[in-house]
């Protein structure tokens, strides 16, 4: 189970990295933390011509607060997110979720940008971004643009990136009017969830993002509206029908829908407790 051969490139600037990406015309892959990419390469299901290691790009580092927004460099590792005072103070949802993501040794390497760029439907990070109404800052050869998290995840392992690199994630600073909740159902600690949900509540409005349930992290506007109306939970849960739930070996779509409902119910209960 050895990776196929590839060229290893280590640019020292964002511009250089983007130039390399363009030069390889889709045959090169950016290497962030490598915690998902390396297993795929070892299984030989990913075989890029070249890896572009983003480790030296200072542009992709740092956590700053400005005008009510936290800017998190794309190469920020999970472990850094967990220990960062700014994140703890301003994005409590991340602190709630991170202990559930894999294990120490993986969190020490895995990056927020890497997870978002991969867009694994089972991963927690995309759902957190949806719940938090985050924006993804991406940079291409010609320009930098902001993509709302809602517009970023297009399908299984599919994003709105177009020859670009994620440079940072912009998350609104939590306000006193907000409450957050997170719950995932895994048979083993640190595994991908059979179903999970991340919720941000602002006054009586909800953003509830499900993960592990469909081809991408998913919000259901009608469900959020029902929450706002304070509909009975039985009614709220009927809106889960709008998700195209995944069937796989661990759970079929019926089970997944049910577990998503349990995760939602328990998260909301925890938020009001």
């Amino acid at each position: 189970m050895k990776a196929p051969d590839f060229d290893y490139l280590r640019p020292s600037s964002l511009d250089a990295a983007l130039a390399m990406l363009a030069e390889h015309d889709g045959e090169a892959m950016p290497l962030a933390g490598g915690q998902s990419l390396m297993p795929m390469m070892n299984f030989r299901v990913a075989a890029p011509e070249a890896l572009i290691d983003l480790a030296d790009l200072t542009e992709l580092r740092g956590i700053t607060v400005d005008a009510g927004t936290v800017r998190i460099g794309a190469m920020t590792r999970y472990a850094e997110l967990m220990s960062d005072a700014t994140v703890q103070a301003h994005i409590p949802l991340i602190g709630m979720a991170l202990p559930h993501i894999a294990h120490d040794a993986v969190r020490n390497r895995g990056t927020i940008g890497g997870s978002l760029a991969l867009a694994d439907p089972a991963a927690e990070m995309p759902a957190l971004m949806l719940a938090l109404d985050a924006s993804i800052e991406v940079t291409g050869p010609d320009a930098t643009r902001m993509i709302k998290a809602d517009d970023f995840f297009l399908g299984m392992f599919e994003t709105a990136l177009d020859g670009e690199l994620i440079t940072a994630i912009h998350v609104p600073v939590a306000t006193p009017a907000q409450r957050f909740g997170f719950h995932e159902l895994t048979q083993r600690h640190g595994d991908y969830a059979l179903a999970g949900v991340a919720i941000a509540q602002t006054d009586d409005s909800y953003r509830a993002a499900f993960f592990g349930v469909a081809d991408r992290a998913t919000r259901v506007p009608e469900l959020e509206a029902a929450l706002k109306r304070q509909d009975d939970m039985k009614v709220v849960l009927t809106y889960l029908d709008q998700i195209d739930f995944t069937d796989d070996l661990k759970a079929n779509h019926t089970t997944r829908q049910r577990l998503a409902g349990v995760a939602l119910t328990r998260t909301l209960k925890g938020m009001t407790a």
Binding site: G34, Q35, M38, P39, L51, D104, A105, V106, N108, R109
Partner: peptide
């Protein structure tokens, strides 16, 4: 701590 198999 890191996974030695997930780092080049």
């Amino acid at each position: 701590t890191v996974r030695g198999c997930l780092m080049l």
